[in-house]
């Protein structure tokens, strides 16, 4: 598979379970495998995968469960991470490096550095977050052309 053959879009969809740390990284690993076949610059693959991994771990660590839907287009990647709550209480603070509400069990594993959302912001070209007690939705977009190519 290469970009020329990727006529329309390629979709990856995964359910992500709450507290399932052992399977953390499965979605981003699958995404990495697909992107590597597209002969994208390694830096782009890295940005997509870091954003995906952080979104995936956020669902595992902070939510009651959710899903990731990833659409790969010839010119961009669009990822949607949705969960079923309890929402981000203070989104402004959550966007600050070092602020974390992760539970102790996650911190012991090296998560909860307060870098999740900042890492996503830094590695995407567009990030839209909507959150309320019923759930959080992240729309993340990485352009394959433009400033970093």
């Amino acid at each position: 598979m290469n970009m020329e053959k990727l006529a329309a879009s390629y979709r990856l969809e995964y359910d992500v379970k709450a507290k399932d740390y052992v399977r953390g990284g499965e979605v981003s690993s699958a995404l990495r495998a697909v992107l590597k076949q597209l002969s994208l610059p390694p830096e782009l693959v890295r940005r997509c995968c870091v954003a995906c991994y952080e979104a995936e771990m956020n669902v595992i660590i902070h939510s009651l469960g959710g899903r990731l839907q990833i659409d790969i287009y010839p010119d961009r990647l669009v990822m949607v991470a949705e969960d079923s709550g309890p929402g981000i209480e203070d989104l402004d603070k959550a966007m600050e490096e070092g602020y974390s509400t992760a539970p102790e069990e996650a911190r012991e594993m090296g998560f909860g550095a307060g870098m999740g959302l900042p890492n996503i912001k830094a590695n995407t070209d567009r990030l839209v977050i909507t959150t309320n007690p019923e759930g959080t939705r992240l729309i993340m977009e990485v352009l394959f052309v433009g400033k970093d190519s």
Binding site: Y21, V22, G24
Partner: peptide, 12 residues
Amino acid sequence: HVNIVAVALMVE
């Protein structure tokens, strides 16, 4: 734990 492998792969 197992997540270190995914992290290492993501950032090569």
